[in-house]
């Protein structure tokens, strides 16, 4: 089925000029994104970690060894859609999920989140342009206060618009923290860009992927400790992990595979 589609779209673009060719590529990328969206919920149900087994060839020694190592520490995984926003979505869901049964931490988090808008305004963001995102974020925290079922939280995170509003706000918080602490972070920016440029290019736009620097900034901005397990093709047979910020006591566990973050559970 997928093959057929590809053939016909290739037939369509034969004999057209260069610009139309670029447009065809963009159209094809859109189609790929659409297919990803149709087959991957924004945040999936909790699944047994063994689902990962099927994603790697049996004779892929590096990954099979690392999977075994991962099984020792975790039992379940919750997948997120690979759309460039996965870190923020995984973080947002995992953190609120962990707070559903910890009302004391939830209240602390609510206070930090409530204050965060003023910090952003002090950082130079226009209140008017950020308040809808902030309100949606606070609404969701208030929903969590009522101790909804996990399914309700999952539904909110699978409502594209609501979910994306939360992603936007987490991106803004990341950007705000990076700019506030620019003296520290500017040493880690590649390409001779200022922190502000970096934020406008790599943090604030939707679908831009996240790296260490984004994770540290968001973890610090919200005072939440995040552990990331790194599973890549590197030798060694074990999965390495990092805690952000260093020395924290993590409540959230994420699995990083090149280009993508999912949520892990013990």
């Amino acid at each position: 089925m997928a093959e057929e589609k590809q053939e016909s779209s290739q037939g369509d673009i034969e004999g057209v000029n260069c610009l139309a060719y670029d447009e065809a590529i963009i159209a094809q990328q859109d189609k790929i994104q659409q297919e990803i969206a149709n087959t991957n919920p924004l945040v999936s149900d909790k699944q047994d970690l063994s689902v990962l087994q099927k994603e790697y060839a049996e004779d892929d020694a590096v990954y099979q060894l690392k999977l075994k190592d991962l099984y020792k520490k975790y039992a379940y995984i919750r997948k997120t859609r690979p759309d460039g926003n996965c870190f923020y979505r995984a973080f947002g869901f995992a953190h609120l999920e962990s707070l559903l049964e910890d009302s004391k931490e939830l209240q602390k988090f609510k206070a930090v989140a409530a204050k965060s808008k003023h910090d952003l305004v002090n950082e130079g963001f226009t209140e008017f342009t950020i308040e809808d995102f902030h309100n949606t974020f606070m609404d969701l925290i208030e929903v969590c206060e009522k101790q909804p079922s996990l399914q309700e939280l999952l539904n909110s995170f699978n409502d594209q618009n609501m979910s994306d509003y939360v992603v936007v706000y987490l991106r803004l918080l990341t950007s705000g923290y990076l700019q506030r602490e620019h003296g520290f972070f500017e040493h880690f920016i590649e390409g001779g860009r200022t922190i502000k440029e970096f934020c406008q290019q790599e943090v604030e736009p939707m679908s831009k992927e996240s790296d260490h620097i984004h994770i540290i900034a968001l973890a610090k901005a919200l005072n939440v400790s995040i552990l990331v397990e790194y599973m890549d093709r590197g030798e060694g047979g074990t999965v390495n992990h990092h805690v952000f910020p260093e020395g924290g006591d993590p409540r959230i566990f994420l699995l990083y595979r090149p280009g993508h973050y999912d949520i892990l559970y013990k």
């Binding site: 990328q29 342009t129 803004l172 406008q200 736009p205």
Partner: peptide, 24 residues
């Protein structure tokens, strides 16, 4: 939108951000 770049000339910093308004 970020990612969509038909012409390939534009600098990425000038792309659409959700905080843009009619005024900006």
């Amino acid at each position: 939108e970020p990612g969509e770049d038909k012409f390939g000339y534009e600098k990425p910093e000038e792309r659409w951000l959700p905080i843009h308004t009619v005024e900006t």
